[in-house]
Structure formats: C-alpha cells, structure tokens
Design a protein around this nucleic acid. Structure first.
Length: 210
DNA sequence: ACATTAAGTGATT
DNA sequence: AATCACTTAATGT
C-alpha cells in the first residue's frame, strides 16, 4: 500500500500528507462489478484510486441509469467533496468497472487536511476541476452527439480504462449504460463492424481502431 | 435434446 | 431512435 501510494501520488503529495494517509486510510480492494456507492448513501469515505477503474452513474426516478464517466488511478470522487461539506446524500452510484484497489479516507480528515497540507488542497481543487470537465464532456455527448457518436465515445473510454481492446460486455449492458435499448445498440454495433472499426463476438466486443 | 440467454432483423411509430 | 415481434445462434444442463 505504501509503494502504490508513493507510485501514484508521490509526486503530488508531501511526505507529511502521505504518512497521514497511511495512518488513517483504509485499503479497500473490490472486484469487477462490486457496488461501492449507491444513490442516497451517506458518504463516509473519500476514495483514492490506486489501481483499476470505477464507473460513475446517475440514476433517474424510475431507477434507470446513465453512465457519467470513469474514474481511474490517481482520481478521486468529486461527489464526496461536495458531500462532506454539506452532509448531503450521494446523487450518484459507483460500481467497479475492473478489479480495483483504493485507499478510503474518512471524510472527517478533509477539513483539517485542507488547512494542514498544501499539496492536499491543490489536489482536491485540481481533481474537482477535472471532474467538472468530465461532467461537461458527458453533457456535451448527451446534447450534441447522436447515438452513433455516443457509442463510439463509450467504446473508446471503455478501452482506455480497461486497457484492453477486447471488451467483455453484452449489447444489453451497453444499452443500460447509454440509456437506450438493446436493439439500437445491436444495430449500431453491426454498422461499426461493417466499417471494420470493431469485431463482434458473443459477450464481447473487440475494438479495432480509435 | 432441451432450455436459456445473447444477438440479428424487418416492420412500425 | 424506440418498440414489437420474431428468428437465429451460442451456451449451459
């Protein structure tokens, strides 16, 4: 845990901060598909991703879901930051996209560390900023891209976080993430296969270009 | 061999 | 782009 923290955050965090993290953080390892945070949960920990990726989703009143963005190593969750200030409940859901490990920092340290550690404050502001940009990207993709474009972006992102062009995913799962129907996904994927951008297998999509 | 689940397709809105 | 209705293909028991 020490080494992983050094490797991923060593260049960002001061020695003091790293020892504070090691002292108070809890190492958590999750498997692909594990749910970390659900809609309405009270957030007690702030995750620092060491390895793997999480997918962050929004949920509507009927329980329908929509993927917002992926978190990777070096990232943290912006939702936790707003939550620990106002004691609000989570408005997002976090699921492990791949097997992941992270350090869970109890939120009560947020406040004092902001004052105590310059490097922590910068990190928090910095990641708040990048999260905000990811959010804008998600909005852009909803507002300005058609399904075809959204699907391509989805596949691109998914290949990036999985570090593997062979995606283990069904058409139905993609449909849930993009909040559309399986039939539409199947058709668009078929079209992409004809363009020779991807190759289709059962339960798998192989991304050839991007 | 049969049931189940994933994926492909035409037609309609 | 969504939905329906149906077919075909792959996989598990």
């Amino acid at each position: 845990m020490k080494e992983q923290l050094q490797n991923n955050y060593g260049f960002l965090f001061s020695e003091d901060l790293i020892s504070d993290i090691l002292e108070n953080g809890i190492l958590k390892e999750v498997k692909e598909g594990d749910q970390l945070i659900n809609f309405g949960d009270t957030i007690k920990f702030m995750p620092l991703l060491l390895e793997g990726a999480l997918k962050i989703m929004r949920q509507d009143n009927d329980g329908d879901e929509l993927l917002l963005y992926f978190l990777e190593r070096g990232d943290t969750c912006a939702m936790t930051m707003t939550c620990c200030m106002g004691q609000t409940k989570s408005e997002i859901k976090a699921v492990a996209e791949t097997d992941s490990s992270m350090i869970m920092i109890p939120v009560q340290f947020m406040d004092s560390w902001m004052k105590k550690h310059d490097t922590w404050r910068s990190y928090v502001f910095e990641s708040y900023n990048t999260r905000f940009h990811e959010m804008l990207e998600a909005i852009d993709s909803l507002a300005f891209l058609d399904m075809h474009g959204r699907l391509e972006k989805y596949l691109r992102d998914k290949v990036l976080v999985n570090k593997d062009a062979m995606l283990s995913v069904t058409h139905q799962e993609i449909a849930y993430d993009l909040h559309t129907s399986r039939v539409v996904v199947s058709r668009l994927l078929k079209a992409l296969e004809k363009e020779e951008k991807i190759k289709l297998h059962r339960n798998k999509v192989e991304v050839l270009v991007f």
